[in-house]
Design a protein around this nucleic acid. Sequence first.
DNA 1: TAATTTTTCGTGTGCGAACACGCAAATATA
DNA 2: TATATTTGCGTGTTCGCACACGAAAAATTA
Lengths: 359, 359
Amino acid sequence: MVRIKDIAKEANVSEGTVDRVLHNRGGVSKKTEEKIKSILERRNFSINPVASALAMKNNHSIAVLIPEYNETDSFWKLPYLGLLKASEEVKSIGVNVTYFKFNQYSRESYLETFNRLIETKPTAVVLVPMFLQETNLIIDELKKIEATYVFLNVDVEGVDSSAYVGQDSYMSGYIAGKLMKLGVPNGFDCCILQTSTSTGDNQAILKRVKGFKDYFNTSQDENVLHELKVDSFSDDVQLASSVHQFLENNPNIRGVFVPSSRISAVVDVLSDVQKQSLCLIGFDNTPQNVACLKNGTVLFLISQKPFDQGYEAVRIVSDHLVKNKVLKEKLYLPIDILTKENVDYNDANQLMFEKDLNQ
Amino acid sequence: MVRIKDIAKEANVSEGTVDRVLHNRGGVSKKTEEKIKSILERRNFSINPVASALAMKNNHSIAVLIPEYNETDSFWKLPYLGLLKASEEVKSIGVNVTYFKFNQYSRESYLETFNRLIETKPTAVVLVPMFLQETNLIIDELKKIEATYVFLNVDVEGVDSSAYVGQDSYMSGYIAGKLMKLGVPNGFDCCILQTSTSTGDNQAILKRVKGFKDYFNTSQDENVLHELKVDSFSDDVQLASSVHQFLENNPNIRGVFVPSSRISAVVDVLSDVQKQSLCLIGFDNTPQNVACLKNGTVLFLISQKPFDQGYEAVRIVSDHLVKNKVLKEKLYLPIDILTKENVDYNDANQLMFEKDLNQ
DNA sequence: TAATTTTTCGTGTGCGAACACGCAAATATA
DNA sequence: TATATTTGCGTGTTCGCACACGAAAAATTA
């Protein structure tokens, strides 16, 4: 590893001078500056971030505002694990990450948790902007203290943010449309199944639906696209009756697209015959969904790569804080197509980390 | 932030003593140890990882043996970039990575390059085991100096390694089979197109073909599977004549599977009508292949995630060296299904790194 | 009690970079 | 030419921790 000392020796100057050109602090003659710069280039020097962090007494802090999770509602576990993994890595370069979890169904919890967060005076914030109105309040506060903030998983239109880390929802829906066309024989229909009222992330769901429809409309083959809206995915009985009635009225349907993460709930109310004959496509690798994928009921799941979202969010923010890298406005993660066969490989990374965590 | 110095003062001992109990190095009386431990607990002390990392100055070295690349044969560029990215990250924790590139078509180059590598006495080696016989010689040498070594991209049967980082070739072929079934209408045929002689990574290709065939055989629908072997993908004229003749003799064919990374060469010799009517599935996101994907000629590409392979290989080895983490024997990377629509998102990571590199 | 061994602990140096202080050389002013 | 001012640069200290060396204190032996 090349050190400042090495560069200084080679240039016949002192370490202080090298330091000056590195941080272009001025006070160096043109000639020696050029000389040093060329040596830096040639030796491919880069500042040792660890020593730098120590000397600077770097104490960046990233605060994360994220929904809490439990067994039944485990979607937010994976982003959290990804955040944790990155946190561990950046600790050694002087970046500290703290977590604040809120109830994703409560606006009050969202705001109240943020208020606790802001008291710790973080240098940067990663947040999941669940509620539009409250998010605007939050952004105002963050601007006051000049904290950089990035949105995680949920992209809010019309609110300016430093960056967004997540999926391109429109395109993921578009791809779902393509896969659906492949899975449904020509001449048959399919339908989009969603709740009439949605919480928080409905922005993403709307965009997925739009992408899905757009693919259907641009494609030559003629398949009719139906829509079914249900009250809730949690009420088994009602869901079952809605779905059965709908399928009876539209016997030509061979594909069902569920743009939320709840396709497993739909599978639970289908008969064996229906499971066999329908091409089911949904979102997110929750344990329940993965189970449906593995037993062959669901043909494709589209993954948002939640683990990677958390990981990347912390990485880009800390690179920004420590190395002054510019924040890319939109960091779109890969749109993963999961099948029965490849799903295990996709989870390997996070599983490995989880295992390490428990030791 | 509480420092060792603070603890020492409070306990009326020197920093050295606190250090001893922190790392239980021994040589501390029971009484003072207890006292210090309780203070550590009470003050909620934790080692400053930044200072710790700096002071430890780990000095591990990883040597990488990998094929060289150029414009026409660019496959190995991406693993190399991934290796580079990881190298940068681990530099700050005292791990140094050096590269040794060989000509992938020359056994002599392979061995000769390794000999240069081994002279640098690395603590660990990442290598692409191209030639079986020579690899055995290499492994013998590595065992002598007790270096840990991991295989990258190519998994060699019957040779024991510390670990393998790459794709599960069998399963990736299996998935290609599934996708092919989706893309080819019932009642039509498809074919596997490969060279009769293959170099280096033919192990992987054989396994892919096996997986592909297995999916076809287990599936209920009846599609006939043909096989076409050509002399070389580089000889346009001959390739064209072979392919055209074959397709004329088998007019029922609607799908072509190319288990190597050269599907773009096949596309180049197809007529527009053939491009329209055939379902083409291949491997690897080389620039040429990605172009075919984007213009709609190729329906799916399966990616080996070459960038990630390089990245992960260095990461797991350095985690092993620095943090004593156990090496997982097989680190299978996700089997990525690439389409026209999602391919851009999949490359984003490596593109970003490449851009940073050029600044 | 003196000599020796063992236990227990303090001191000092280095890791690589950041930055303040201040001296010498170069340039400007009288 | 002597003095003042700027410019260019070297030196020394600090960050918090790891680890080696060796000294004082305690325990053992003669």
